[in-house]
Design a protein around this nucleic acid. Structure first.
Lengths: 308, 308
DNA sequence: TTGTAAGCGTTATCAC
DNA sequence: GTGATAACGCTTACAA
């Protein structure tokens, strides 16, 4: 009755509603769920809470979910397969109405078989076999744009600091970088490629190494902004100016990037918006609406770190 | 039986466990909760997801809660009273076993009357009337330390960029700043005090204003790191060097702060640790263990932005 | 050690 | 419109 599923006499209705308010009655969502078979809960499996990009997605999710009647339940997969499987299991056990998986390394088919016809939305990753919905950004395109921009600025010795070697996004970004280089007829010197792990520390290390090996480079494309911050600091330490001596472009456009000195050029991933979109899409899916997987185009943001 | 609450024959137990695994059986946590009266769920009310400091606390929470059998349910109060009340109501309706409130503006007594003997832990804020548990950092002390450090570096014209005027933490930090100034026999010039709102943009605006009004200052104490980032950028724009021309100290020690150029001196709030501590404390509270409210001491981290 | 039955607080169904 | 009553999938207490 409180949900308006049955018709009752207006007077009576009012009386009940009043009492409801007066006594501070809170319906037991658990019982509602058990009886109705819907928990009004969305499971969210994220990876490595603390990383700006994934956090921003979560933020969008929570913000957009609030007020929809659905509450998110978060779990952290920490990029480890075992943890991710366990997390999905826990979420299924909680009878979430839908599952949002942000990043992660367990295969989509593995997820699919665990959830058993529950709507699932993959965020910030593509779905290998297309049987789950997904919402991702075209990393390859973004990296291509960033590198091309650097080339257009006259650079031909562009170092790339990669992300984790086996990370899907990192790989796509490397490919984009190579494509742009090749397209411009520039050869990708192996010595210009240095590995990182998406952390600021790895950016510092990468530049230190480049410097130590006396590799000649006039620009850096970093796998993400955090790495770019680290790279910028390492350059600062040895007195190299940005962008005069070395231009830098990052990837993500996290909040702090427009306030670094100089402000960082980067490839903007609409992380928060992705989270919001995912939330809306998931609520729709739960309620039976269709959803078409999308591959969002990232946007190159040119700031002073790469302008000459 | 699956929970080991009753004794059964080993063989039989094994058989059931096998079947359990084979069929991919996931117990319905909802039904368990309804029957047992415990939801194995911890409600978390945070404010303004997206702000580094609060996010770090959430991160610690999720990380530490994972594996305990309790899952966090997040809601965002956005610093608005109505939203916060509504969020607490929703959490109570979900029959969470405990409630963690991070920041927020609704009074502790208001919370107390809504939750009805549910264990509540206030994080990053003190409890006005001591009837709820709390876990906070001594903001006043932190600000005092930061300002004193600047004074010891020889500065006497120290500007302070405040946080939101009615924000508890912002007020405490102002007090700490004043205390240090007074103690050193320095008068707090009104013109050295400029308002901010904890955002990087407000840091830029504050410095621009200081500069425009030709206020003489050789150091800045910013209400948080984000504000300090903005201040540093504004200084960079007009060619002022840090720390040679102006020293800067922030507050929070967010991840990016050790990678700015120059690395930012700041007052470290152990945000993540607070989240972890809160998670452990809450699990303890739910299970009947006692907890003593604590006021953590922040730690001054001196980096290059304030060293001369 | 095992089986049985009575709830837990709702929703949903069906007669009235 | 309105009451009753059977689920929902478990836990728990008690009997066998």
């Amino acid at each position: 009755m409180l949900k308006g599923t049955v018709a009752v006499h207006p007077d009576k209705k009012k009386a009940v509603l009043d009492a409801t308010k007066r006594l501070g009655f809170q319906p037991n969502v658990l019982a509602q769920s058990l009886a109705s078979g819907r928990s009004s809960t969305i499971g969210v499996l994220t990876q490595m809470i603390g990383r700006p990009f994934y956090d921003s997605i979560s933020q969008g999710l929570v913000a957009e979910l609030s007020g929809t009647g659905y509450s998110p339940i978060f779990t952290d997969g920490r990029w480890e397969k075992a943890e991710q499987k366990q997390a999905v299991g826990a979420l299924v056990g909680r009878r979430v109405d839908g599952l949002i998986v942000i990043g992660g390394t367990i295969s989509s088919s593995q997820i699919a078989e665990m959830v058993n016809d529950l709507p699932v939305l993959l965020v910030a990753r593509k779905c290998e076999n297309g049987d789950l919905h997904s919402l991702a950004v075209d990393n390859e395109l973004g990296a291509y744009q960033a590198t091309k921009h650097l080339i257009e600025q006259g650079h031909d010795r562009i170092a790339m600091i990669g992300g984790l070697a086996d990370h899907e996004d990192a790989i796509a970004r490397s490919v984009g970088y190579r494509n742009a280089m090749n397209e411009a007829g520039l050869k990708v010197d192996r010595e210009l490629l240095v590995e990182g792990d998406f952390s600021a520390e790895s950016g510092v290390r990468a530049v230190d190494q480049l410097l130590q090996d006396s590799i000649h480079f006039t620009a850096i494309f970093a796998a993400n902004d955090l790495t770019a911050f680290g790279a910028r600091l390492a350059l600062y330490r040895v007195g190299k100016r940005v962008p005069e001596d070395v231009a830098i472009v990052g990837f993500d456009d996290q909040m702090e990037s427009s306030f670094t000195t100089p402000p960082l050029s980067t490839v903007r991933q609409p992380a928060r918006e992705m989270g919001e979109l995912a939330a809306r899409a998931m609520v729709g899916l739960v309620e039976g609406q269709p959803f078409e997987s999308v591959l969002l185009a990232p946007e190159l943001i040119v700031r002073e770190s790469s302008k000459n």
